[in-house]
């Protein structure tokens, strides 16, 4: 017996994979703002975030046939692809640090390990997050800044901080959970 599902997300991504422009437009309609906000969170300027958003949607088109609705919701998949792209981009920046001109003097380059000159993450895009990260315990703060905002792998952070990998993972997981809780509390308070 044939079972016909209403798996709209799978259908949408298959249409995207086949190059259906209306499907790509629909994908942007649903996730364009999220992708831009995620990009802006970790990149230094709106222009960079716009470039990254365009590249992410090209990547989404190229990988659309790998989307598996049994594994994750579409929003998770889209944001995962976005995050991977942003991590690649951040790593490229670390590998090839920009030459700082007059206009970028306040956006100092990052040196892995943080020995001399720490990168100033583009927190101006989300000052509330910046404040909440500063309130976290030192290890959680370091791990979140280095992984989420700078694109280092957990293993790299483990080596940089000379901390066991399991501890780093645990700190990241707990730190992210705490950030979400605190943000939720703040929103409730404002309401």
């Amino acid at each position: 017996m044939v079972f016909q599902s209403t798996d709209e997300e799978w259908i949408l991504m298959s249409r995207v994979a086949s190059g259906d422009e209306s499907a790509i437009s629909e994908l942007y309609e649903r996730f364009g703002a999220l992708v831009f906000k995620a990009s802006r969170q970790v990149l230094n300027s709106r222009a960079e975030a716009e470039d990254a958003s365009q590249e992410i949607f090209v990547r989404l088109w190229k990988t659309a046939d790998r989307f598996d609705p049994r594994r994750a919701r579409l929003v998770t998949w889209v944001m995962l692809i976005a995050r991977r792209h942003l991590i690649d981009r951040l790593r490229r920046k670390v590998a090839r640090p920009e030459v700082l001109g007059l206009e970028t003097e306040n956006e100092a380059g990052f040196i892995p390990g943080g020995s001399t000159k720490e990168q100033v993450a583009p927190m101006e895009a989300n000052p509330a997050l910046s404040a909440r990260i500063q309130e976290l315990p030192a290890l959680q703060r370091e791990v979140i800044e280095r992984t989420y905002l700078k694109g280092f792998t957990l293993r790299e952070v483990s080596e940089q901080l000379n901390a066991p990998l399991g501890t780093v993972k645990s700190a990241l997981s707990r730190g992210l959970a705490r950030l979400r809780e605190r943000m939720g509390d703040a929103e409730q308070h404002l309401a």
């Binding site: 831009f36 969170q41 989300n126 979400r180 605190r182 943000m183």
Partner: peptide, 23 residues
């Protein structure tokens, strides 16, 4: 994935859609 706590508080420019479609 959609947690506002981990996203910037800026909206995309209106012309980003056409740039994305063009790319």
């Amino acid at each position: 994935a959609t947690d506002a706590a981990l996203l910037a508080d800026e909206e995309p420019p209106a012309d980003l859609r056409s740039k994305v479609m063009g790319s």
